[in-house]
Design a protein around this nucleic acid. Sequence first.
DNA 1: TGAAACATTTTTATCGATTATTTGCAATTA
DNA 2: TAATTGCAAATAATCGATAAAAATGTTTCA
Lengths: 252, 252
Amino acid sequence: MMRRWRDTYESSIFSSKAHLSAMNKNIQTSELDPQTASATQKAYLAIQRMIVVGEISAGEKLKIGTLTAKLGTGASPVREALSLLTSDQLVERIDHRGFRAAQTSRENFEEILGLRCALEDRALRQSIARATNEWEERLVLSHHRMVRQRREDVEAFEALHKTFHMTLLDNCGSPILIRYCSQLYDLNIRYRYIAGQTVNYQSRDIAAEHQAILAAAVDRDVDLAAERLLNHYRQTGAFLNGVFSRMEPVDL
Amino acid sequence: MMRRWRDTYESSIFSSKAHLSAMNKNIQTSELDPQTASATQKAYLAIQRMIVVGEISAGEKLKIGTLTAKLGTGASPVREALSLLTSDQLVERIDHRGFRAAQTSRENFEEILGLRCALEDRALRQSIARATNEWEERLVLSHHRMVRQRREDVEAFEALHKTFHMTLLDNCGSPILIRYCSQLYDLNIRYRYIAGQTVNYQSRDIAAEHQAILAAAVDRDVDLAAERLLNHYRQTGAFLNGVFSRMEPVDL
DNA sequence: TGAAACATTTTTATCGATTATTTGCAATTA
DNA sequence: TAATTGCAAATAATCGATAAAAATGTTTCA
């Protein structure tokens, strides 16, 4: 019995939070349980996480030896993971000189913000234009799960937050666009971690903003949803820019 | 004497055609001569080329063993190159089942075309908005080189064609956007090769279209240049779609 | 004193071999 | 005959070791 290649890909309404970090498809979406995951997968996720949350700081050298020791795996998987992360713009490679965590800068942050707004605007509009009940339900569900999550567990919340935002877009029917949005999301989050999570989300009512975006999307009001989404990002962007202004350039 | 990391990156007006295939920065732009290039670099370029020009057909299995034999290198570089190509959407990876050349389809082609128009429009507008003499001169030069190249040498022409199109965009000041455009360009070219090079460029006067785009860019007429560029792509898109309609779905 | 040349150490890149997984085939069973 | 199971071959993933290159430190000589 010939099994089709594509059968391996599976997607479920009840997708786990682990799916997420893998949304940009550099690694397989299925098989993410610690048992079966390949060494490369584990290394990819581990290093990505370390860079995004800032455990590895910008520009830091990523020595193969150090990483193999820390991750308890060989050089090949680490190397492959780093190659993958290079494509995500989280790691820079220079021939014969190895890898390092991508540099951060004000310009880079603003580039990401601007591109994100442009691409997510497009994706959201297409997503809503192609809306189905199935998508609408997934959206409501992902929002609910995000709301329910305690804010104290930052990483858990961030995962659900990403799921919500990506669910908004994932009905757009354009896998490449989704991938780019996912990449830009991760790059952006990294700056949020740099600014410090606690400081963030103070004066604004983020929950209300999310609720409003959800409502507009469910109403299938394309313009309103897009406006609210971009506003959401731009406000966060302005807030982070304010934080960065008060930081030493070196720390950014 | 402490040498700064970034010094390795260099960019010159007189960039060679080899730069090009590497523009999406998965591999190093410098050090591309066959002597010093790393095994990974060589494998990346070789496999990318084979997939883009169709020597490796869509969906074809990419066995590590076969590739190491063909490229005369070990498994690690091949594996790393394939990982990189996965991020370029030219290769699909499935865990424990290896790699294969990305599938092609009508939807995929149209997705690429649409995204390309959206992203290049943005990039071109930014590029022109930030125009300098230096950029203008590079642009004229890249156009001249493309015009001068004999059409018979398809690969040489394609390289210069890409250089011209990417030069149009590369003043936009957004490395990530450039990278995405470069990726989409390569994905698109692949479909041109599938349609067959000879058939292409028949009834239209491509040279005139290029000339017109160049003129508008040099005049710094943002709207006109963008309109002409998108038109250029849409016409090519319509042409290819016509070709694909007459092809068996299997061959696409 | 300072810069060049050399040697030493560290680190990266690559290879060859080993292990784990999947696939295809054949035998078995309902 | 169709599905299932078990086995063997093929292939992918990973490891450990080696070769190549870069970074660092030391000496030599102007």
